[in-house]
């Protein structure tokens, strides 16, 4: 099997007294698309927010277990957490353009890394906008506020912005759920190309999407990992009864 990029070991998470994640063990392979599948409310999003420690912001979260990234436990790292987060780009359900121009959206993370000056930033911005398949549409209006783009373009801008900090992992939380079908397929196609260089973790509840782009599927239900397998095995020969029912559309 491939190299493991992220290894989640015995992860438990509570919000107050409510247990959200229960004994999670997942191996996420490098430079593949891993899809976390499951009905809404099963803890997918929380798992993702734990992986880049955004749950820290929720004061009442209690966590046990380990998340190993390249052999380092990021839940107990001594390194600045912002550096860990820069290793993972995040794409959320609705595009979240920052309140600034298109150019500055992409340059935002680069500036945080210490790259200053428009001249130095320019090649990076161009490269990542091309990478996100947005360059041709915005190259003449980079100084417009990002909020003027269409929703689909905004989501690609968020992708470019995430790529700009040169992450090794892309975390995507239902990134196409608010997009029209055409924009959605543009994003999906980008994932295909991007997995040559990046490890991609995609949360979704759309089975077809999982089928289309996953290499590896993790099925979650109510805070538990029910089954994890390579994509063909998962869809053609599911081991668990609950997975079979889910694939048949028995519950949503």
């Amino acid at each position: 099997m491939e190299d493991t990029k992220i290894s989640i070991q015995n992860l438990n998470l509570w919000f107050g007294k409510l247990k959200i994640l229960n004994e999670i063990n997942i191996e996420i392979p490098e430079k593949k698309v891993t899809v976390i599948l499951g009905p809404s409310g099963c803890g997918k999003t929380t798992l993702m927010r734990t992986m880049n420690r955004l749950v820290d912001l929720q004061g009442n979260a209690k966590i046990s277990g380990k998340i190993m990234l390249d052999g380092e436990d990021i839940l107990n790292t001594k390194r600045d957490i912002t550096l860990v987060r820069q290793k993972m780009g995040l794409l959320s359900q609705r595009p979240t353009t920052l309140p600034m121009s298109i150019f500055n959206n992409v340059a935002y993370g680069l500036r945080l890394k210490g790259i200053r000056g428009r001249k130095k930033l320019w090649p990076h911005v161009e490269k990542h906008l091309i990478e996100a398949n947005l360059w041709d549409e915005v190259k003449d209006r980079l100084n417009d506020p990002a909020s003027r783009l269409s929703i689909g373009q905004q989501q690609r801008l968020c992708l470019a912005r995430g790529l700009a900090v040169s992450p090794e992992i892309i975390l995507a939380d239902e990134p196409t759920s608010s997009l029209d079908p055409i924009s959605a397929s543009v994003i999906e196609n980008q994932f295909f190309k991007l997995k040559e260089n990046y490890t991609i973790v995609l949360v979704t509840h759309i089975m077809r999407q999982a089928k289309r782009i996953a290499d590896y599927v993790v099925f979650m239900y109510l805070g538990d990992v029910i089954e994890q397998a390579p994509v063909d095995e998962f869809f053609n020969n599911p081991q668990h009864k609950m997975t079979r029912e889910y694939l048949r559309g028995a519950f949503y």
Binding site: N52, L57, T82, L98
Partner: peptide
């Protein structure tokens, strides 16, 4: 100010204060 916006900035490697300074206050 939406939580998503905060998350987006943090996951780009900004600290809490940088996010407030560059995103929240501007927004």
């Amino acid at each position: 100010v939406h939580q998503d916006l905060f998350d987006a900035s943090l996951s780009l490697g900004a600290s809490k204060w940088q996010t407030i300074k560059h995103v929240v206050l501007r927004k």
